[in-house]
Nucleic acid binder design. Structure first.
Length: 443
RNA sequence: CGGGGCGUGGCGCAGUCUGGUAGCGCACCUGUUUUGGGUACAGGGGGUCGUGAGUUCGAAUCUCGCCGCCCCGACCA
Protein backbone atom coordinates (compact mmCIF):
# COMPACT_ATOMS: atom_id res chain seq x y z
CA UNK A 1 0.00 0.00 0.00
CA UNK A 2 1.14 3.48 -0.84
CA UNK A 3 0.53 5.89 1.98
CA UNK A 4 -0.44 8.62 -0.47
CA UNK A 5 -3.47 6.52 -1.40
CA UNK A 6 -4.30 5.28 2.06
CA UNK A 7 -6.63 6.71 4.67
CA UNK A 8 -4.48 7.18 7.72
CA UNK A 9 -5.73 10.15 9.75
CA UNK A 10 -2.95 10.31 12.34
CA UNK A 11 -3.19 12.83 15.14
CA UNK A 12 -0.22 14.76 16.42
CA UNK A 13 -1.88 15.60 19.67
CA UNK A 14 -3.58 13.40 22.20
CA UNK A 15 -7.36 13.42 22.03
CA UNK A 16 -8.71 14.72 25.34
CA UNK A 17 -11.09 11.84 25.93
CA UNK A 18 -8.51 9.08 25.78
CA UNK A 19 -7.01 8.26 29.15
CA UNK A 20 -5.22 4.98 28.62
CA UNK A 21 -2.37 4.35 26.26
CA UNK A 22 -4.02 1.88 23.91
CA UNK A 23 -7.01 4.15 23.40
CA UNK A 24 -4.77 7.16 22.80
CA UNK A 25 -2.57 5.32 20.36
CA UNK A 26 -5.46 3.78 18.46
CA UNK A 27 -6.99 7.22 17.97
CA UNK A 28 -3.66 8.83 17.14
CA UNK A 29 -2.70 6.11 14.68
CA UNK A 30 -6.00 6.53 12.86
CA UNK A 31 -7.21 3.02 13.68
CA UNK A 32 -10.61 3.87 15.11
CA UNK A 33 -13.01 6.75 15.42
CA UNK A 34 -15.55 6.96 18.17
CA UNK A 35 -19.13 7.14 17.07
CA UNK A 36 -20.92 7.09 20.43
CA UNK A 37 -19.96 6.04 23.95
CA UNK A 38 -18.37 2.62 23.63
CA UNK A 39 -19.10 2.37 19.90
CA UNK A 40 -16.38 2.75 17.30
CA UNK A 41 -15.80 2.77 13.59
CA UNK A 42 -12.79 0.75 12.55
CA UNK A 43 -10.74 2.68 10.03
CA UNK A 44 -8.59 0.83 7.48
CA UNK A 45 -5.51 0.41 9.66
CA UNK A 46 -7.50 -0.71 12.69
CA UNK A 47 -9.57 -3.10 10.64
CA UNK A 48 -6.45 -4.79 9.29
CA UNK A 49 -5.26 -5.58 12.80
CA UNK A 50 -8.72 -6.73 13.84
CA UNK A 51 -8.86 -9.05 10.83
CA UNK A 52 -5.38 -10.39 11.50
CA UNK A 53 -6.40 -11.31 15.02
CA UNK A 54 -9.57 -12.86 13.67
CA UNK A 55 -7.58 -14.93 11.20
CA UNK A 56 -5.31 -16.32 13.89
CA UNK A 57 -8.35 -17.28 15.95
CA UNK A 58 -9.93 -19.03 12.96
CA UNK A 59 -6.75 -20.90 12.12
CA UNK A 60 -6.23 -22.15 15.64
CA UNK A 61 -9.86 -23.16 16.02
CA UNK A 62 -9.68 -25.10 12.78
CA UNK A 63 -6.63 -26.96 14.07
CA UNK A 64 -8.59 -27.93 17.17
CA UNK A 65 -11.39 -29.28 15.00
CA UNK A 66 -13.91 -26.59 15.84
CA UNK A 67 -16.36 -25.46 13.17
CA UNK A 68 -16.86 -21.86 12.16
CA UNK A 69 -20.41 -20.61 11.65
CA UNK A 70 -22.27 -17.31 11.94
CA UNK A 71 -25.37 -16.35 13.89
CA UNK A 72 -27.37 -13.13 13.67
CA UNK A 73 -26.73 -10.11 15.85
CA UNK A 74 -30.43 -9.46 16.29
CA UNK A 75 -32.31 -12.24 17.99
CA UNK A 76 -35.85 -12.87 19.08
CA UNK A 77 -36.54 -12.55 22.80
CA UNK A 78 -38.48 -15.81 22.82
CA UNK A 79 -35.44 -18.06 23.05
CA UNK A 80 -34.10 -15.98 25.90
CA UNK A 81 -37.39 -16.30 27.74
CA UNK A 82 -37.07 -20.04 27.36
CA UNK A 83 -33.70 -20.11 29.10
CA UNK A 84 -34.84 -17.60 31.68
CA UNK A 85 -32.10 -15.15 30.81
CA UNK A 86 -34.35 -12.54 29.21
CA UNK A 87 -35.13 -11.29 32.69
CA UNK A 88 -31.85 -12.29 34.34
CA UNK A 89 -29.62 -10.39 31.99
CA UNK A 90 -30.88 -6.99 33.04
CA UNK A 91 -30.01 -3.61 31.65
CA UNK A 92 -26.86 -4.86 29.96
CA UNK A 93 -28.97 -6.33 27.22
CA UNK A 94 -30.05 -3.96 24.50
CA UNK A 95 -33.72 -4.60 23.86
CA UNK A 96 -35.40 -3.63 20.63
CA UNK A 97 -38.91 -3.83 19.25
CA UNK A 98 -39.51 -4.55 15.61
CA UNK A 99 -42.33 -2.92 13.61
CA UNK A 100 -44.80 -5.53 14.78
CA UNK A 101 -43.99 -4.79 18.38
CA UNK A 102 -42.14 -8.08 18.83
CA UNK A 103 -39.41 -8.13 21.43
CA UNK A 104 -35.99 -8.47 19.88
CA UNK A 105 -32.51 -7.98 21.26
CA UNK A 106 -28.98 -7.33 20.13
CA UNK A 107 -27.14 -10.44 21.16
CA UNK A 108 -24.70 -10.19 24.06
CA UNK A 109 -23.82 -13.90 23.67
CA UNK A 110 -25.40 -16.84 21.89
CA UNK A 111 -25.92 -19.89 24.10
CA UNK A 112 -29.66 -19.85 23.45
CA UNK A 113 -29.48 -19.60 19.70
CA UNK A 114 -26.81 -22.25 19.27
CA UNK A 115 -28.69 -24.60 21.57
CA UNK A 116 -31.79 -24.05 19.50
CA UNK A 117 -29.90 -24.94 16.34
CA UNK A 118 -28.32 -28.00 17.84
CA UNK A 119 -31.41 -29.40 19.52
CA UNK A 120 -33.16 -29.44 16.18
CA UNK A 121 -30.46 -31.34 14.34
CA UNK A 122 -28.38 -33.26 16.81
CA UNK A 123 -30.40 -36.23 17.95
CA UNK A 124 -27.90 -39.02 18.38
CA UNK A 125 -24.75 -39.52 20.41
CA UNK A 126 -23.13 -40.23 17.06
CA UNK A 127 -23.49 -36.54 16.16
CA UNK A 128 -21.10 -35.63 18.92
CA UNK A 129 -18.62 -34.39 19.94
CA UNK A 130 -19.50 -31.13 18.27
CA UNK A 131 -17.99 -27.70 18.72
CA UNK A 132 -19.09 -24.69 16.72
CA UNK A 133 -18.10 -21.11 17.08
CA UNK A 134 -18.55 -17.74 15.47
CA UNK A 135 -16.77 -14.43 15.39
CA UNK A 136 -19.49 -11.86 15.50
CA UNK A 137 -20.35 -8.44 16.89
CA UNK A 138 -21.89 -8.39 20.31
CA UNK A 139 -23.54 -5.64 22.25
CA UNK A 140 -23.63 -5.16 25.99
CA UNK A 141 -25.07 -1.93 27.20
CA UNK A 142 -22.40 -1.18 29.77
CA UNK A 143 -23.28 1.49 32.28
CA UNK A 144 -19.97 3.09 31.78
CA UNK A 145 -18.05 2.12 28.68
CA UNK A 146 -14.43 3.24 28.80
CA UNK A 147 -10.87 2.59 27.74
CA UNK A 148 -11.69 2.64 24.03
CA UNK A 149 -12.19 -0.79 22.50
CA UNK A 150 -11.07 -2.47 25.71
CA UNK A 151 -14.48 -1.96 27.21
CA UNK A 152 -16.82 -0.92 24.46
CA UNK A 153 -20.52 -1.58 24.32
CA UNK A 154 -20.25 -3.00 20.84
CA UNK A 155 -17.41 -5.47 20.54
CA UNK A 156 -16.18 -8.23 18.28
CA UNK A 157 -15.92 -11.58 19.93
CA UNK A 158 -15.26 -15.20 19.17
CA UNK A 159 -17.81 -17.30 20.99
CA UNK A 160 -17.79 -21.06 20.79
CA UNK A 161 -19.98 -23.81 22.15
CA UNK A 162 -19.29 -27.48 22.64
CA UNK A 163 -21.85 -30.29 22.81
CA UNK A 164 -20.82 -33.59 24.29
CA UNK A 165 -22.42 -36.78 25.52
CA UNK A 166 -20.70 -36.95 28.89
CA UNK A 167 -19.03 -34.71 31.36
CA UNK A 168 -15.74 -36.42 30.59
CA UNK A 169 -16.07 -35.58 26.90
CA UNK A 170 -17.08 -32.05 27.72
CA UNK A 171 -14.03 -31.65 29.92
CA UNK A 172 -11.89 -32.77 27.03
CA UNK A 173 -13.50 -30.03 24.98
CA UNK A 174 -12.66 -27.65 27.83
CA UNK A 175 -9.03 -28.73 27.78
CA UNK A 176 -8.90 -28.55 24.00
CA UNK A 177 -10.05 -24.97 24.16
CA UNK A 178 -7.55 -24.11 26.81
CA UNK A 179 -4.75 -25.47 24.66
CA UNK A 180 -5.96 -23.80 21.48
CA UNK A 181 -6.31 -20.49 23.31
CA UNK A 182 -2.76 -20.68 24.64
CA UNK A 183 -1.52 -21.13 21.09
CA UNK A 184 -3.76 -18.37 19.80
CA UNK A 185 -2.49 -15.75 22.24
CA UNK A 186 1.13 -16.70 21.75
CA UNK A 187 0.81 -16.19 18.02
CA UNK A 188 -0.35 -12.65 18.78
CA UNK A 189 2.78 -12.01 20.78
CA UNK A 190 0.90 -12.12 24.07
CA UNK A 191 1.28 -14.06 27.24
CA UNK A 192 -2.25 -14.73 28.47
CA UNK A 193 -2.35 -16.58 31.76
CA UNK A 194 -5.28 -18.89 32.49
CA UNK A 195 -6.70 -17.99 35.88
CA UNK A 196 -9.43 -19.62 37.86
CA UNK A 197 -12.41 -17.33 37.59
CA UNK A 198 -16.02 -16.78 38.44
CA UNK A 199 -18.72 -17.78 36.00
CA UNK A 200 -21.05 -14.78 36.22
CA UNK A 201 -24.34 -14.90 34.32
CA UNK A 202 -23.20 -17.70 32.01
CA UNK A 203 -23.33 -20.08 34.94
CA UNK A 204 -21.37 -23.23 35.62
CA UNK A 205 -18.58 -24.51 37.82
CA UNK A 206 -15.42 -24.85 35.80
CA UNK A 207 -14.11 -21.72 34.24
CA UNK A 208 -10.81 -20.05 33.50
CA UNK A 209 -10.17 -16.54 32.33
CA UNK A 210 -7.14 -15.66 30.23
CA UNK A 211 -5.44 -12.54 31.43
CA UNK A 212 -2.74 -10.40 29.92
CA UNK A 213 -0.74 -8.64 32.60
CA UNK A 214 -0.90 -4.86 32.21
CA UNK A 215 -0.93 -1.95 34.61
CA UNK A 216 -4.14 -0.67 33.10
CA UNK A 217 -5.95 -3.98 33.50
CA UNK A 218 -9.36 -3.88 35.10
CA UNK A 219 -8.93 -7.04 37.14
CA UNK A 220 -6.73 -7.49 40.14
CA UNK A 221 -4.84 -10.76 39.83
CA UNK A 222 -2.85 -12.92 42.23
CA UNK A 223 -0.37 -15.43 40.90
CA UNK A 224 2.69 -17.50 41.40
CA UNK A 225 5.37 -15.85 39.27
CA UNK A 226 6.33 -19.31 38.02
CA UNK A 227 3.30 -19.18 35.69
CA UNK A 228 4.94 -16.40 33.71
CA UNK A 229 7.80 -18.75 32.84
CA UNK A 230 5.45 -21.14 31.07
CA UNK A 231 5.42 -20.89 27.31
CA UNK A 232 3.59 -23.00 24.84
CA UNK A 233 6.16 -22.78 22.08
CA UNK A 234 6.26 -25.05 19.13
CA UNK A 235 4.70 -28.21 20.47
CA UNK A 236 3.01 -30.83 18.40
CA UNK A 237 -0.55 -31.15 19.52
CA UNK A 238 -2.99 -33.90 18.77
CA UNK A 239 -6.28 -32.39 19.77
CA UNK A 240 -7.93 -35.80 19.88
CA UNK A 241 -5.45 -36.96 22.48
CA UNK A 242 -7.33 -36.51 25.73
CA UNK A 243 -4.34 -37.27 27.90
CA UNK A 244 -2.13 -34.75 26.12
CA UNK A 245 -4.70 -31.96 26.34
CA UNK A 246 -5.32 -32.82 29.96
CA UNK A 247 -1.65 -32.68 30.85
CA UNK A 248 -1.17 -29.33 29.14
CA UNK A 249 -4.21 -27.99 30.94
CA UNK A 250 -2.70 -29.15 34.23
CA UNK A 251 0.69 -27.74 33.38
CA UNK A 252 -0.79 -24.29 32.82
CA UNK A 253 -3.40 -24.23 35.57
CA UNK A 254 -1.86 -25.98 38.55
CA UNK A 255 0.22 -23.09 39.79
CA UNK A 256 -1.66 -20.45 41.69
CA UNK A 257 -3.25 -17.85 39.40
CA UNK A 258 -6.57 -16.28 40.26
CA UNK A 259 -8.54 -13.12 39.76
CA UNK A 260 -9.91 -11.22 42.73
CA UNK A 261 -13.24 -13.00 42.27
CA UNK A 262 -11.84 -16.36 43.31
CA UNK A 263 -8.73 -15.32 45.19
CA UNK A 264 -8.00 -17.46 48.23
CA UNK A 265 -5.55 -15.90 50.71
CA UNK A 266 -4.84 -19.17 52.48
CA UNK A 267 -3.90 -20.98 49.27
CA UNK A 268 -1.95 -18.00 48.02
CA UNK A 269 0.07 -18.02 51.24
CA UNK A 270 1.39 -21.47 50.32
CA UNK A 271 3.20 -19.95 47.35
CA UNK A 272 6.78 -19.05 48.28
CA UNK A 273 6.86 -15.37 49.22
CA UNK A 274 9.26 -14.29 46.46
CA UNK A 275 6.98 -15.74 43.81
CA UNK A 276 3.74 -14.26 45.16
CA UNK A 277 2.67 -11.53 42.79
CA UNK A 278 -0.24 -9.14 42.89
CA UNK A 279 -0.82 -7.26 39.67
CA UNK A 280 -3.47 -6.16 37.21
CA UNK A 281 -4.64 -7.93 34.11
CA UNK A 282 -6.78 -7.52 31.02
CA UNK A 283 -9.24 -10.31 30.43
CA UNK A 284 -8.96 -11.47 26.83
CA UNK A 285 -10.83 -14.74 26.95
CA UNK A 286 -12.72 -17.18 29.08
CA UNK A 287 -13.72 -20.82 28.89
CA UNK A 288 -16.63 -22.46 30.71
CA UNK A 289 -17.99 -25.88 31.36
CA UNK A 290 -21.58 -25.53 32.49
CA UNK A 291 -22.91 -29.03 32.11
CA UNK A 292 -26.58 -29.34 31.31
CA UNK A 293 -27.72 -25.86 32.34
CA UNK A 294 -28.92 -24.83 28.90
CA UNK A 295 -29.70 -28.26 27.52
CA UNK A 296 -32.02 -28.80 30.46
CA UNK A 297 -33.71 -25.43 30.18
CA UNK A 298 -34.15 -25.80 26.45
CA UNK A 299 -34.61 -29.52 26.08
CA UNK A 300 -31.46 -30.37 24.14
CA UNK A 301 -31.21 -34.14 24.35
CA UNK A 302 -29.79 -36.96 22.27
CA UNK A 303 -30.25 -40.69 22.27
CA UNK A 304 -27.36 -42.56 23.77
CA UNK A 305 -26.23 -46.06 22.73
CA UNK A 306 -28.94 -47.62 24.86
CA UNK A 307 -31.67 -45.64 23.17
CA UNK A 308 -32.17 -43.39 26.19
CA UNK A 309 -32.71 -39.64 25.88
CA UNK A 310 -29.90 -37.84 27.69
CA UNK A 311 -29.12 -34.16 28.17
CA UNK A 312 -26.08 -32.93 26.33
CA UNK A 313 -23.16 -31.50 28.24
CA UNK A 314 -22.11 -28.08 27.14
CA UNK A 315 -19.45 -25.47 27.53
CA UNK A 316 -18.81 -22.10 26.01
CA UNK A 317 -15.66 -20.20 25.22
CA UNK A 318 -14.89 -16.65 24.27
CA UNK A 319 -12.06 -14.56 22.94
CA UNK A 320 -12.43 -10.79 22.92
CA UNK A 321 -11.18 -10.08 19.44
CA UNK A 322 -11.69 -6.31 19.44
CA UNK A 323 -10.47 -6.04 23.02
CA UNK A 324 -7.30 -7.85 22.00
CA UNK A 325 -6.35 -4.99 19.72
CA UNK A 326 -6.21 -2.74 22.77
CA UNK A 327 -4.65 -5.40 24.97
CA UNK A 328 -1.81 -6.01 22.53
CA UNK A 329 -1.06 -2.29 22.45
CA UNK A 330 -1.14 -2.09 26.24
CA UNK A 331 1.41 -4.88 26.29
CA UNK A 332 3.55 -3.57 23.44
CA UNK A 333 4.23 0.12 22.98
CA UNK A 334 6.70 2.85 23.88
CA UNK A 335 6.54 6.61 24.14
CA UNK A 336 6.66 6.98 20.36
CA UNK A 337 3.77 4.68 19.61
CA UNK A 338 2.66 1.16 19.00
CA UNK A 339 5.02 -1.79 18.52
CA UNK A 340 3.11 -4.50 16.67
CA UNK A 341 4.09 -8.12 17.14
CA UNK A 342 4.78 -9.69 13.74
CA UNK A 343 1.75 -11.94 14.07
CA UNK A 344 -0.81 -9.14 13.97
CA UNK A 345 0.92 -6.19 12.34
CA UNK A 346 -1.23 -4.36 9.79
CA UNK A 347 1.68 -4.14 7.34
CA UNK A 348 4.77 -6.29 7.38
CA UNK A 349 7.16 -3.40 7.00
CA UNK A 350 7.31 0.27 6.19
CA UNK A 351 9.30 1.86 3.42
CA UNK A 352 10.37 5.42 4.05
CA UNK A 353 11.53 7.41 1.06
CA UNK A 354 13.59 10.23 2.48
CA UNK A 355 13.68 12.20 -0.72
CA UNK A 356 10.49 11.80 -2.63
CA UNK A 357 10.88 12.96 -6.20
CA UNK A 358 14.59 12.15 -6.30
CA UNK A 359 14.77 9.65 -9.14
CA UNK A 360 17.15 7.12 -7.59
CA UNK A 361 15.33 7.09 -4.26
CA UNK A 362 11.95 6.72 -5.93
CA UNK A 363 13.21 3.88 -8.09
CA UNK A 364 14.84 2.08 -5.18
CA UNK A 365 11.64 2.32 -3.14
CA UNK A 366 9.53 1.06 -6.00
CA UNK A 367 11.86 -1.88 -6.39
CA UNK A 368 11.71 -2.75 -2.68
CA UNK A 369 7.97 -2.40 -2.79
CA UNK A 370 7.54 -4.73 -5.75
CA UNK A 371 9.93 -7.35 -4.50
CA UNK A 372 8.35 -7.49 -1.04
CA UNK A 373 4.90 -7.65 -2.58
CA UNK A 374 5.99 -10.41 -4.90
CA UNK A 375 7.28 -12.33 -1.90
CA UNK A 376 3.78 -12.25 -0.44
CA UNK A 377 4.36 -9.47 2.07
CA UNK A 378 2.45 -6.27 2.40
CA UNK A 379 4.66 -3.21 2.79
CA UNK A 380 3.43 0.29 3.54
CA UNK A 381 5.35 2.69 1.36
CA UNK A 382 5.41 6.27 2.63
CA UNK A 383 5.56 8.02 -0.70
CA UNK A 384 4.22 11.31 0.54
CA UNK A 385 6.14 14.46 -0.13
CA UNK A 386 6.87 14.94 3.55
CA UNK A 387 10.00 15.59 5.48
CA UNK A 388 11.96 12.71 6.93
CA UNK A 389 11.06 13.58 10.51
CA UNK A 390 7.36 13.46 9.80
CA UNK A 391 7.62 10.14 8.02
CA UNK A 392 9.62 8.58 10.83
CA UNK A 393 7.19 9.87 13.43
CA UNK A 394 4.26 8.36 11.54
CA UNK A 395 6.01 5.02 11.15
CA UNK A 396 6.94 4.92 14.83
CA UNK A 397 3.38 5.79 15.79
CA UNK A 398 1.70 3.11 13.74
CA UNK A 399 4.30 0.63 14.92
CA UNK A 400 5.23 -1.59 11.98
CA UNK A 401 7.87 -4.05 13.20
CA UNK A 402 10.35 -3.27 10.41
CA UNK A 403 11.22 -0.13 8.53
CA UNK A 404 13.27 0.25 5.40
CA UNK A 405 14.74 3.70 5.03
CA UNK A 406 15.86 4.79 1.59
CA UNK A 407 17.75 7.97 0.86
CA UNK A 408 20.34 9.38 -1.53
CA UNK A 409 23.11 9.13 1.03
CA UNK A 410 22.76 5.39 1.49
CA UNK A 411 22.04 4.69 -2.13
CA UNK A 412 25.37 6.27 -3.04
CA UNK A 413 26.94 3.39 -1.12
CA UNK A 414 24.45 0.86 -2.42
CA UNK A 415 22.67 0.39 0.91
CA UNK A 416 19.34 0.98 2.57
CA UNK A 417 18.68 1.01 6.28
CA UNK A 418 16.65 -1.65 8.06
CA UNK A 419 15.34 -0.67 11.48
CA UNK A 420 13.65 -2.82 14.07
CA UNK A 421 10.80 -0.95 15.72
CA UNK A 422 11.11 -2.88 18.94
CA UNK A 423 14.82 -2.49 19.62
CA UNK A 424 15.40 0.65 17.59
CA UNK A 425 18.48 -1.00 16.10
CA UNK A 426 19.37 -0.18 12.51
CA UNK A 427 21.67 -1.83 10.07
CA UNK A 428 22.78 -0.86 6.61
CA UNK A 429 22.24 -3.58 4.05
CA UNK A 430 22.05 -3.92 0.34
CA UNK A 431 18.44 -3.79 -0.83
CA UNK A 432 18.55 -7.53 -1.56
CA UNK A 433 19.87 -8.41 1.87
CA UNK A 434 17.33 -6.13 3.52
CA UNK A 435 14.47 -7.74 1.63
CA UNK A 436 15.73 -11.20 2.52
CA UNK A 437 15.93 -10.29 6.17
CA UNK A 438 12.41 -8.86 6.28
CA UNK A 439 11.03 -11.92 4.52
CA UNK A 440 12.82 -14.19 6.98
CA UNK A 441 11.02 -12.50 9.88
CA UNK A 442 7.70 -13.81 8.63
CA UNK A 443 8.54 -17.42 7.92
C1' C B 1 -26.76 4.51 38.86
C1' G B 2 -24.04 8.05 42.85
C1' G B 3 -20.06 11.81 42.69
C1' G B 4 -17.02 15.16 39.66
C1' G B 5 -15.68 17.55 35.04
C1' C B 6 -16.17 19.12 30.02
C1' G B 7 -18.97 20.60 25.21
C1' U B 8 -15.87 27.03 20.98
C1' G B 9 -13.33 25.02 12.69
C1' G B 10 -10.56 18.06 11.80
C1' C B 11 -7.29 17.89 16.71
C1' G B 12 -5.48 20.52 21.22
C1' C B 13 -7.00 24.88 23.70
C1' A B 14 -7.92 30.49 25.18
C1' G B 15 -12.10 33.70 25.56
C1' U B 16 -17.23 32.87 29.95
C1' C B 17 -16.06 35.43 36.32
C1' U B 18 -16.90 41.40 34.47
C1' G B 19 -22.42 40.57 27.88
C1' G B 20 -20.39 44.60 22.83
C1' U B 21 -19.44 41.84 15.42
C1' A B 22 -15.03 34.71 17.66
C1' G B 23 -9.14 33.93 18.67
C1' C B 24 -4.32 30.92 19.14
C1' G B 25 -1.28 26.42 18.01
C1' C B 26 -1.39 22.04 15.00
C1' A B 27 -3.64 20.11 10.58
C1' C B 28 -5.54 21.73 5.54
C1' C B 29 -5.02 24.85 0.52
C1' U B 30 -1.51 28.28 -2.66
C1' G B 31 3.43 30.06 -3.41
C1' U B 32 8.59 30.57 -2.14
C1' U B 33 12.13 28.04 0.83
C1' U B 34 14.02 23.67 3.11
C1' U B 35 15.17 18.37 2.78
C1' G B 36 18.60 11.77 6.88
C1' G B 37 14.06 12.63 13.16
C1' G B 38 7.71 16.90 12.92
C1' U B 39 12.09 23.62 8.18
C1' A B 40 11.06 28.89 7.62
C1' C B 41 8.21 32.83 5.60
C1' A B 42 3.96 34.91 3.08
C1' G B 43 -1.02 34.46 1.60
C1' G B 44 -5.73 31.64 2.15
C1' G B 45 -10.24 28.43 3.26
C1' G B 46 -13.13 26.49 7.12
C1' G B 47 -16.80 27.61 13.22
C1' U B 48 -25.34 29.50 13.44
C1' C B 49 -19.52 28.65 20.17
C1' G B 50 -23.81 20.90 21.90
C1' U B 51 -29.22 22.11 21.87
C1' G B 52 -34.01 24.59 23.15
C1' A B 53 -36.28 28.45 25.64
C1' G B 54 -35.64 32.95 28.45
C1' U B 55 -33.32 37.85 30.13
C1' U B 56 -31.21 42.03 27.23
C1' C B 57 -30.71 47.25 22.48
C1' G B 58 -27.09 43.22 22.12
C1' A B 59 -25.53 36.39 24.59
C1' A B 60 -19.88 31.79 23.43
C1' U B 61 -20.43 34.81 28.00
C1' C B 62 -26.24 35.55 32.38
C1' U B 63 -30.87 32.10 33.81
C1' C B 64 -33.65 27.47 33.27
C1' G B 65 -34.43 22.83 30.73
C1' C B 66 -32.55 18.99 27.64
C1' C B 67 -28.67 16.19 25.02
C1' G B 68 -23.77 14.35 24.47
C1' C B 69 -18.87 12.98 26.11
C1' C B 70 -14.97 12.01 29.80
C1' C B 71 -13.12 10.70 34.82
C1' C B 72 -13.75 8.23 39.98
C1' G B 73 -16.90 4.67 42.28
C1' A B 74 -20.47 0.76 42.13
C1' C B 75 -21.41 -2.88 38.31
C1' C B 76 -19.67 -6.15 34.49
C1' A B 77 -18.56 -12.73 29.33
Amino acid sequence: MRLSRYFLPVLKENPAEAQIVSHRLMLRAGMIKQSAAGIYSWLPLGLKVLKNIETIVHEEQAKAGHLAMLMPTIQSADLWRESGRYDDYGEEMLRIKDRHGRDMLFTPTAEELITDIVRGHVTSYKDMPLTMYQIQWKFRDERRPRFGVMRGREFYMKDGYNFDLTKEDAMHAYNRHLVSYLRTYERMGLQAIPMRADSGPIGGDDTHEFLVLAETGESEVFYDSAVTDLTFGDRDINYDDKAQCQSIMEEFTTKYARTDETHDEALFAEVPQVRRKVARGIEVGQIFYFGTKYSEAMGATVQDGDGKQVLVHMGSHGIGVSRLVGAIIEASHDDKGIIWPEGVTPFHCGIVNLKQGFAEADAACEDLYHQLTKAGLEPLYDDRNERAGGKFATMDLIGLPWRLTVGPRGLKNGVVELTCRKTGESEELTPQAAIAKVISQYN
